[in-house]
Design a protein around this nucleic acid. Structure first.
Length: 800
RNA sequence: GCGGGGGUGGCGGAAUGGCAGACGCGCACGUCUCAGAAGCGUGUGGGGUAACCCUUGAGGGUUCAACUCCCUCCUCCCGCACCA
């Protein structure tokens, strides 16, 4: 017979709900702990990824509660987004209605897992009392010049009929539907995240408790690159072409320059030249390709000669100007100096188009041929300057600095930093998102909606056809407004914000979810922030986390918060796999958490998912393992019938060893090894029997992992209050000290024997004991030991 | 190409300079049972009758001692990428 998990889990879920067991209240006298898991998109059903993410968080939350912290553990829903709209088109439901049902269903499932959320703090981003503050934040950014409108080429998904941020383009396709992304010119709203690039980069150094991987990805994404802008003037003209390079040491090897096809000077350069027609055709061809497609298109470097020349300012050499698709207008200055002998891309291009070559860096160790034609690839490493005028003979790293200084002095170059990070496109031509609070007036231009008129609410009745852009554009009542400035006829912005805007500050809203005077109550935020532990998927390593950091710094500038980073510690949990593959609908390898709860209970599911792998690594689903977790719980359950009166001294020692191990393991999120040692303790007392005190301690240590199970046993054993009102056990260091220790005897580093000795035995005594050991005697064969190494309380190594 | 992280039994994994394989899954045998399931017990890296030998992706090095540190290489996963 197994324990009645169904009855027990329902019982405790009801009790927790009724008693508001996880209600968090600010209390300046108590040390707070803010634990947050990334809130879900409400798709209806929870999946194993949710189960894993939220179980990890729940254990940490309950553990911290037992340790006496004032824990806030909130939950909400990232409720705007396209699936609701797709459902509306398909099923003739309203997005709000569809979303509400999904949230309800999801809430029920989360409650069935027994998670310790403070449901009083629940927020849904699709509610007007939330997105009102999105609009408020947007207007504040507008006031500070951090929100602006720009007509530009944007990534356009023809299937979703919307623009996409660079971040939302994956492998040339839409991140959502994988349709090939096109290029389109549109008037769009941007947030000036680039205004924060230095701080976003620099403060990464502050995030000591973030995974290296995430820091590396953000660092890479911000993409700071230091070098020199060099000014080439055109032949027979004063006009300058500025090129950016990180390898100014190779400037004497620059034998031509290349512009991006969109470069503003290109038209002047080709006009009237014999190459004009060919060049124009090339530019047209490149323009028709999407940015992303162009970047991904393979290694062949296409380009044409403009017919014009420029002058290399360091040696007054005449160099041809080319156009090529491998130079991007978005990066650097949109123009490069080409150094074929020291850059592989330039090398390939120069070979293809028979452009001149010159070696200017020679490897110090093994000088190669100085005849460029004999070389089959560019040399990109370090070495000594040659063919570089007065800089010959210098080490190239040294030359980098010297040449840059020399160029700045002569006014032909400037030390410069370029960044990869672009401003953030937030406009979406969609209905189910936060309306951008802007009105266009033919007289007054772009007019922000006054704060007192917020929120700009989404009209509930909207025709969904799935065609012809945003449905909001078809709602006259919404679009046709009077101008807040001149009261004349005006038109409302019909684009909505990307949902990443919503999730960039929800962690602050949780501090005071019902506050109606500002996005959050400064006092509450002062107490609860920062988030002590944030937990979520690696897929948010760049976008969500970068945007949240950006918003936090913005609030800091508004003096609304007094910290510059929102998340103290970050844990990115691994994915749940089945048969080596990610669980997904399309693969058809989904395991439904609900049916696992039905068969084994939420506690067993929680236990298995924590035991099967460390939180950061991938987890291979194994139902046999879940069965094993369930078997273990039943084993613990049966101990209650086998309690003895006198505690065995050895068992007591094991208990305190376990308390020590589990305490550190829980703090470090090593749940798998914590569970292993709890299993060891269980095995020990299962056979020998245990007294009630030992058993109660075991139950407390299990409680963060299997809370319903533990509450029930706790109650059966005579406790009236919830186990989570109690305290985490302390270990007694005195009990950890053994009088006798088992010592390993190695001979030449190999295990040969073991011996039990007093803990504080003298080295001499130990030596004679070891040398008297039968096995040792037979291994020594009368030879004297060369060395006798003693590691106290651990081992002895005899070297022959 | 650049950056990050891996590679340990049949499987998930443990050990971060000191007994490799904790804990669990699986498997085998035993026990209980009319029988099965559950439970309980024992064993379980490979080779060898045994003493012993071999074994943490490969090779080298440091050390009394290496899964752990250093060097060379192979390989897998993830992220970024005509980034000048």
């Amino acid at each position: 017979m197994h324990y009645n998990f169904k009855k027990i889990e329902e019982k405790w879920q009801k009790i927790w709900q009724k008693s508001q067991a996880f209600r968090a209240q600010a209390d300046p006298k108590r040390k707070k702990y803010y634990l947050l898991e990334m809130f879900p998109y409400p798709s209806g059903k929870i999946h194993m990824g949710h189960v894993r993410n939220y179980t990890i968080g729940d254990v940490a939350s309950r553990f911290k509660t037992l340790q006496g912290y004032n824990v806030m553990h909130p939950m909400g829903f990232d409720a705007f987004g396209q699936p609701a709209e797709n459902a509306a088109i398909k099923n003739k439901t309203k997005p709000a209605e569809w979303t509400r049902r999904c949230i309800q269903e999801m809430e029920t499932e989360l409650k069935k897992m027994g998670f310790s959320y403070d449901w009083e703090r629940e927020v849904s981003t699709c509610q007007a009392d939330y997105y009102k503050w999105n609009q408020w934040i947007f207007l504040k950014m507008l006031e500070r010049g951090l929100a602006y409108k720009k007509a530009s080429g944007v990534n356009w998904c023809p299937s979703c009929q919307t623009t996409l941020a660079n971040e939302e383009v994956v492998d040339c396709g839409c991140w959502r539907c994988h349709t090939k992304v096109e290029q389109k010119d549109l008037d769009q709203w941007y947030l000036k995240i680039t205004g924060y690039k230095e701080r976003l980069l620099e403060d990464l150094g502050q995030l000591k408790n973030w995974p290296q991987r995430v820091l590396a990805m953000q660092n890479n994404w911000i993409g700071k690159s230091s070098g020199v802008d060099i000014y080439f003037h055109l032949e027979n003209s004063d006009k300058l072409i500025s090129v950016f390079t990180t390898r100014v040491d190779t400037i004497f090897g620059a034998t031509y320059i290349v512009l991006a096809p969109e470069h503003p000077l290109v038209k002047d350069l080709i006009v009237g030249k014999p190459q004009e027609k060919e060049a124009l055709e090339f530019i047209k061809k490149v323009a028709s390709e999407s940015k992303v497609v162009r970047a991904a298109s393979d290694v062949k470097k296409e380009g044409v000669f403009t017919g014009s020349f420029a002058v290399n300012p360091v040696n007054n050499e005449k160099v041809p100007i080319w156009i090529a698709d491998y130079v991007l207008m978005e990066y650097g200055t949109g123009a490069i100096m080409a150094v074929p002998m020291h850059d592989q891309r330039d090398f390939l291009f120069a070979k293809e188009h028979k452009l001149p070559l010159r070696i200017v860096i020679e490897p110090a160790a093994n000088p190669r041929t100085r005849e460029p034609r004999e070389l089959t690839e560019a040399y990109e490493g370090d070495g000594q300057q040659i063919n570089s005028g007065e800089f010959n003979g210098l080490d190239n790293q040294e030359a980098k600095t010297k040449i840059a200084q020399w160029m700045e002095a002569k006014g032909i170059g400037k030390v410069q930093t370029h960044w990869r990070l672009r401003d953030w496109l937030i406009s979406r031509q969609r209905y189910w998102g936060t309306p951008i609070p802007i009105i266009y007036c033919s007289k007054c231009g772009v007019v922000p909606v006054p704060y007192k008129d917020l929120p700009v609410e989404l009209p509930p009745d909207v025709p969904f056809t799935g065609e012809g852009g945003s449905p909001l554009g078809k709602v006259k009542k919404f679009v046709e407004v009077s101008c807040p400035k001149c009261a004349g006829r005006a038109r409302r912005e019909t684009d909505t914000m990307t949902t990443f805007f919503d999730s960039s500050w929800y962690f602050l809203r949780f501090c005071s979810p019902k506050f109606n005077a500002a996005p959050f109550n400064l006092q509450e935020a002062k107490y609860w922030m920062v988030v002590d532990q944030y937990i979520g998927g690696i897929e948010h390593a760049i976008l969500h986390l970068l945007y949240s950091r950006f918003f936090t710094k913005f609030f800091q500038d508004l003096k609304m918060v007094d910290f510059n980073e929102p998340f103290e510690k970050l844990l990115t949990q691994g994915m749940v796999l089945k048969d080596g593959e990610v669980m997904s609908k399309s693969r058809g390898n989904i395991v439904n958490p609900d049916s696992m709860i039905k068969d084994y209970g939420a506690d067993a599911l929680r236990l298995f998912i924590l035991f099967a792998a460390p939180p950061e690594t991938e987890l291979e689903w194994n139902e046999r393992g879940l069965e094993g977790a369930f078997k273990f719980l039943n084993r613990v359950w049966r101990i209650q019938d086998n309690l003895v009166d006198n505690p065995d001294q050895e068992i007591l020692k094991s208990l305190h060893k376990t308390i020590k191990k589990v305490s550190t393991d829980f703090s470090e999120f090593k749940f798998n090894t914590a569970i292993a040692s709890l299993m060891e303790l269980t095995n020990a007392i299962y056979q020998l029997g245990a007294d009630k005190e030992v058993f109660l301690n075991l139950v407390i240590m299990l409680s963060p992992i299997v809370p319903h199970f533990a509450e029930e046993l706790w109650q059966i054993l005579g406790n009236k209050e919830s186990i989570f009102k109690g305290a985490w056990p302390q270990y007694d260091p005195k009990l950890l000290v053994e009088e006798n220790v088992e010592l390993v005897i190695q001979i030449n580093g190999k295990l040969r024997s073991k011996i039990e000795v007093a803990r504080d035995i003298s080295e001499d005594k130990l030596k004679s004991l070891v040398l008297g050991d039968q096995k040792v005697i037979s291994w020594l064969e009368g030879r004297p030991p060369k060395k006798f190494i003693v590691v106290p309380q651990k081992l002895v190594n005899i070297v022959l």
